[in-house]
């Protein structure tokens, strides 16, 4: 493989998700035109917002060669805390949000601690956190979380501004912010360097433990935000939420082309992956494939994306010699 070829394949990996999005959109338009009616479109836009917020956090963790499987648990935890503390009263909301953020940051720190200090593989560490948090929620609430969601959150989860769901706007702003941080700040540079080669980054004077910990905490905070959005959307405490959002957040980033091996990927790619995944998910519902079908298709697409990535990577390696 010569250099030009490698560059072309690199290009391929970057453009593939975009091409995929276009193809899925066309295929969806042919098989189920109703997908583009306003109510479905709104659903897609909401899904983009919710999945997108978690995927941004996941991207940060993936960039430092980690993975966060505790996202779903933090979302559930957020709903439970908000419901329990406010019991539906808007006045108590700010404090509840702070509490949820503190709890989320705690989970993020726990993940970081396990990964950095104890050297636990991120997959294991964050899954343990997931189980721990789910267990605590179940034990404390006995399956019946008390309280209810204040209507003030409805604005965040279910309102629209100029026809655009608020979660999507929130996601758009955050994507822009995270994108700029990654591409244009020294913090972003340190993140990429740490993800690509933690040893070299540390030897170059970068405080890599701090960088990794920040990524996990940021990811958990994004999950808290997603939890608020979701609670506002359904207006109901859903403590059991979402192993699916774990998967979807990772899937979106990976489909977009963010490498599981760390240090490679941009917010642009994640956004692209989120768009693709959200359309795909709603399309699956539209086709009536059921839960199993959605998971299977999601799995197939992730497999395809990872397969594409490995290909690109091995070509890059061979260039390095």
């Amino acid at each position: 493989m010569n250099r030009a070829g490698a560059l072309a394949s690199d290009f391929g990996a970057r453009v593939a998700p975009l091409a995929g999005l276009v193809i899925v959109l066309i295929a969806a338009a042919i098989t189920s035109p109703s997908l583009f009616e306003s109510s479905n479109l709104r659903l897609i836009l909401f899904q983009i917002g919710l999945i997108g917020i978690t995927a941004l956090g996941q991207t940060l963790v993936l960039l430092v060669a980690g993975i966060d499987l505790s996202v779903g648990a933090v979302i559930g935890l957020t709903a439970v805390i908000v419901a329990a503390h406010t019991d539906g009263s808007d006045g108590a909301l700010p404090v509840a949000i702070l509490l949820a953020a503190a709890a989320g940051a705690g989970v993020g720190l726990l993940n970081a601690l396990l990964v950095i200090v104890r050297g636990v593989p991120p997959f294991v560490a964050t899954f343990a956190s997931f189980v721990l948090v789910e267990g605590v929620i179940t034990a404390v609430t006995r399956g019946a979380p008390s309280g209810s969601i204040p209507s003030g959150l409805h604005t965040l989860g279910a309102d629209r501004v100029a026809g655009i769901p608020v979660p999507l706007l929130v996601f758009a702003v955050l994507a822009l912010v995270v994108g700029v941080i990654l591409a244009r700040t020294s913090a972003g540079r340190r993140l990429y360097a740490t993800g690509l080669n933690p040893r070299a980054a540390a030897m170059s004077g970068i405080r890599t433990p701090l960088v990794v910990a920040s990524a996990y905490v940021a990811c958990a905070l994004f999950a808290v935000l997603a939890g608020l959005v979701d609670a506002g959307y359904i207006g109901y405490v859903d403590a059991q939420l979402s192993r699916e959002l774990n998967l979807e957040s990772i899937a979106a980033a990976v489909i977009g082309g963010v490498a599981l091996t760390g240090g490679e990927g941009t917010v642009g790619q994640t956004v692209c992956g989120v768009l693709l995944l959200a359309v795909l998910l709603v399309w699956m519902v539209e086709l009536g494939t059921g839960v199993g079908g959605q998971l299977a298709v999601e799995g197939a697409v992730i497999l395809g994306a990872v397969w594409l990535q490995r290909q690109t990577l091995s070509q890059k390696r061979s260039v390095k010699g």
């Binding site: 995929g20 193809i23 399309w283 494939t289 298709v297 697409v301 497999l303 395809g304």
Partner: peptide
């Protein structure tokens, strides 16, 4: 290939 895979499973 990737999209075909997804499409096929979807259908």
């Amino acid at each position: 290939f990737v999209l075909g895979l997804g499409l096929l499973s979807a259908l």
